[in-house]
Design a protein around this nucleic acid. Structure first.
Length: 510
RNA sequence: GGCCCGUUCGUCUAGGGGUUAGGACGUCAGGUUUUCAUCCUGGUAACAGCGGUUCGAUUCCGCUACGGGCUACCA
């Protein structure tokens, strides 16, 4: 196949937030298209009126945008094969269903919901494998195969509700060629007469999907494994519509699984296990329930992409850190695995830590500044950048920036009581007082001078490093953690350090 | 229940008829350090089971077990 004819699509349904499995599908489509010089299309499959969620489409687009997954054709910018929203293509689908009817590959069915239920209940006891609308049951139902032509005509002209069902062949092996799984053979006996066109005038996924993929000249269908069971139906549809020669190649991706236990990753797992399952925070407009997102939790989009890329794909080398450009360079469907992957939140954090470490202090400074502003404080960029280079090591997620740096922007209000109990000895007050006096006489205030001063002072007092530094740390930042004390003191400045020591001593000694 | 897909360290995975079965995350132990982290070094740990093919199987085939998906006028 000529690369210029490669066209893939990501076709989500706007029924709620896109979860990370969906983002990964979009990513693999994107990578495949960019790698091969083809095109990626975003198509919104909004044929289900009941499940439609109004803010879902914009959520999907914003999520993909945040990740850096761009489309060549989509509902916003359009393209040569638009529109790209199935709701805007509604008028198009019925003719194809009718074509199938006229060719004898589909038929009208008038059964009510109740009648369908009765049929399934009855057959479930006799032969569970037959409890479907298929080659044998269709003969006992109300449809254009069993009803007189005049009756069917009358029902149609009376606008009685009907659906159009595919007429699955009785005995036939249907072969699906899958780029990831090889040849999958399903006997038509196991397929049922799926509804192609619903009584509400909308096509089902199966019809709309095949029609649009064909009309949009899609060359490769890269989608989740949950679609594998309906792939034989899709093959049949291409055949019956006369499009088998241009049928796209299929690639069914393995699913993303829960980190613990079993089953595919779901919305609930995030809340339960404390990690986001959505790229962006999502608010359910009806329940007002909020689900956390990777963006809001402090992940970098580059890291997020890297994490997702490695859930089901690997380059075959030991390299694990990949930029989007590198992923495009290395990606291939051949290296996509066959089995589902359990999502590992710990490894996700590790990726993000790496990406944070790679950022320049000036870039981190921008992120920290926005947090500083949120706490109603101000700062200057140079000072903030210096703070960032000091604390970067201990930052994994963006909010860690503030959590590790706040004391560079305001004085501590409390002093960790546990730490105080542990390190504050009877002689500590004198030791600190003496140090503060000597520090006050220091002309040049930097970490080298401070270091010299501390060493001399400790020698003269016959004391150890920890005896002074731990109390000092408690006084200056209120806790027993953080970057090196000399560096911290240098950055804070002489006046501020001495002031904090004075205030802290008053509070601690009561 | 039926159909389909899958199964290498706890997790993500490499590999593939003969390997000390490799890497990463985690974990454990040391080291660095004024603290907490980071970081560095090292260790731990896997071919689901049973048959077959073969000189030889984790690798190929079959069965079983287990896991997953689908089984709607949802996608």
């Amino acid at each position: 196949m000529n690369n210029s004819t490669i066209r893939v699509r990501f076709a989500p349904s706007p029924t709620g937030p896109l979860h990370i499995g969906g983002v990964r599908t979009a990513l693999y489509n994107f990578l495949f298209a960019r790698k091969t010089g083809g095109k990626v299309i975003l198509r919104i499959e909004d044929t289900d009126q009941n499940r439609y969620v109004s803010n879902a489409e914009s959520y999907i687009i914003e999520s993909l945008n945040w990740c850096g997954i761009q489309f060549d054709e989509d509902p916003i910018k359009g393209g040569p094969y638009g529109p790209y929203r199935q709701s805007e293509r509604k008028g198009l689908y019925r003719q194809y269903a009718e074509t199938l009817v006229s060719r004898g590959f589909a038929y009208y069915a008038f059964d009510s919901e109740l009648e369908l239920e009765e049929m399934r209940d009855r057959l479930k006891h006799e032969d569970p494998s037959m409890a479907q609308y298929g080659p044998f049951t269709r003969l006992s139902m109300k449809n254009s195969l069993t009803l007189l032509a005049e009756v069917v005509q009358e029902k149609l002209s009376n606008c009685e509700p009907f659906v159009i069902r595919i007429k699955i062949p009785e005995k036939e092996d249907i072969i699906v060629h899958d780029l990831i799984r090889g040849e999958v053979v399903v006997h038509s006996h196991n397929l049922d007469d799926k509804v192609l066109f619903k009584s509400d005038g909308w096509p089902t996924y199966h019809l709309a999907n095949i029609v649009d993929d064909h009309l949009m000249k899609i060359s490769h269908v890269i989608r989740g494994e949950e679609w594998l069971p309906s792939a034989p139906l899709h093959v049949l549809l291409y055949r019956y519509l006369g499009w088998e020669a241009e049928m796209p190649a299929f690639a069914h991706l393995p699913l993303l699984l829960k980190p613990d236990g079993n089953g595919k990753l779901s919305k609930r797992d995030g809340d339960r296990l404390g990690f986001p399952v959505f790229p962006l925070q999502w608010e359910d407009l009806i329940t007002r329930e909020i689900s956390s997102g990777y963006r809001e939790s402090g992940y970098l989009p580059e890291a997020f992409i890297n994490i997702l890329a490695f859930l089901g794909w690997n380059p075959g080398t030991e390299k694990e850190l990949f930029s989007m450009d590198e992923l495009i360079e290395e990606f291939s469907l051949e290296r996509v695995g066959r089995h589902g992957s359990k999502f590992d939140p710990e490894k996700a954090k590790w990726f993000n830590h790496h990406y944070i470490q790679r950022m320049a202090p000036e870039e981190l400074s921008l992120l920290l500044t926005s947090q500083i502003v949120k706490h109603c404080l101000t700062t200057d960029p140079i000072y903030t950048a210096r703070v960032c280079s000091l604390i970067r090591d201990r930052v994994t997620l963006i909010p860690d920036l503030w959590n590790n740096a706040w004391f560079f922007f305001k004085r501590p209000e409390t002093y960790n009581e546990q730490v105080k109990q542990k390190i504050w000895k009877p002689e500590t007050t004198q030791l600190v007082k003496g140090f503060a006096e000597e520090a006050g006489r220091l002309d040049v205030w930097n970490k080298e001078q401070l270091h010299g001063l501390v060493e001399n002072y400790l020698f003269s007092m016959n004391a150890k490093m920890g005896q002074l530094m731990n109390p000092l740390r408690l006084l200056i930042i209120g806790d027993n953690q953080g970057p090196g004390m000399m560096e911290t003191e240098e950055l804070l400045g002489k006046e501020e350090v001495l002031a904090r020591i004075r205030i802290g001593m008053e509070k601690i000694n009561g």
